[in-house]
Design a protein around this nucleic acid. Structure first.
Lengths: 223, 223
DNA sequence: GTCATCATGTAAGCCGTTACATGATTGC
DNA sequence: GCAATCATGTAACGGCTTACATGATGAC
């Protein structure tokens, strides 16, 4: 799941590890405080497998770093203390960029089932957070799959709540859980409805331009 | 967390592993299908540490092994393993009973913080499912701690939803998540209110008899 | 000159999973 | 006799955590 999140973020911007962590926490909201002991090895793995590449150091997010790594450069910046220049990078950051192979892997991870034991709410939330990169039909499929899952869960909960052996606290828990699921389903239904309307009308209703080409469809670099 | 669940179930009945799994799934609803590869080693550990003991096989004196909804009452008279009259006692079950040390450990686990990374909703749900064993003040404390946690989360989500950079899907997710949390808090408030009323009136309003033996035994205030 | 923050990493461990191996009993 | 279910276990692995080690930079 972490790989999916990393590749998703890197699909949008070139980032270094520390910043990836920040965004996972502040923007995505999933993975509240992912640990570095998990993040950095993941980045190493992705680099090893060719899903991402390291582009030198220096530039912050807003300044797309020029290609080809002048690898020796970051060590030089160590002595140079320029006061006037805009905030250049601190310590030697490793800025990552996603590759074509990485985008392919992102799509595969997106479609793949999570290993059992993962929190499906988080798993769905992560995918929804990247839904704007999807082609409309894939987006719709995501929402409908989630709806099916929740419907099944609701059925189980409703059945379970009929068990007369449940004590008052457990019963309250189950009933509240069922209500929450119903609420989730209603929300999904609104999203699905919106999606269907978007697909019917060719005009793009939002600022986001429609893209039909593929799952990925990257924007360029930062506006 | 699994240890807590096991000890909690064993606080109520003597059970064997297979049945513990079934109850975790069907009654508690947490741990949908906990794996045996996790359950049995956990039971071994608990036995090793003296938190539980193995009592021979089925039909014990006091509690003839649960009125499990399934068929075939386990008749007594079945001796330990490979004994005579294999009438209704399937394979050699290891039936576990909680010890005093086990009850102590249960209380400690109950109060202890879960290791980071655990799903707090599940963690809370598990505790609530055992709340009837608690003294009323401890029960109230559990609910109020949960309420505090959710309030904090709500604040974060509300703040996050103000971030103008969020795309429509992520924003919808965050807003829905905030609503769900509000819903949870409202539910908790109802539970808390009920608890407070119970503590004010000495009469036990439910079939469940009051128990003061466990945890902090400071009695409520008289009206 | 020291502290807070930014930044990257390694090692050990926890807590769950799947896959596999085995044994007893019931029903056809 | 054979499959399905009940029942217990082991081995390998996965994905995350904490704890630790290190280095650079800006602020006071």
């Amino acid at each position: 799941m972490l790989d999916l999140a990393i590749l998703g973020l890197l699909s949008e911007h070139e980032l270094h590890g520390y910043e990836i962590r920040r965004r996972l926490r502040d923007e995505l909201g999933l993975f509240t405080n992912i640990s570095f002991g998990s993040l950095y090895p993941a980045l190493s793995r992705l680099e090893q497998s060719g899903a991402v590449t390291v582009i030198g150091s220096a530039g912050s997010v807003s300044t797309p770093v020029p290609p080809t790594g002048s690898l020796s450069g970051d060590r030089a910046g160590l002595r140079v203390r320029r006061a006037s220049a805009p905030r250049t990078g601190r310590r030697s950051r490793k800025v990552y960029r996603i590759t074509d192979a990485g985008r392919t892997q992102f799509e595969q991870l997106f479609e793949a089932d999570e290993p059992a034991g993962t929190d499906d709410a988080r798993s769905f939330g992560l995918r929804l957070a990247f839904a704007r990169h999807l082609a409309p039909p894939a987006r719709l499929a995501l929402l409908e799959r989630r709806r099916t899952d929740l419907s099944r869960r609701l059925l189980v909960d409703r059945t379970r709540s009929c068990d007369s052996r449940l004590d008052q606290y457990t019963r309250s828990l189950v009933e509240h859980s069922a209500e929450a699921t119903e609420h989730d389903i209603a929300w999904l239904d609104r999203l699905i409805d919106t999606e269907r309307q978007k697909q019917r009308s060719p005009a793009s209703p939002d600022g986001e331009p429609e893209r039909e080409d593929a799952l990925t469809a990257m924007k360029g670099i930062d506006p």
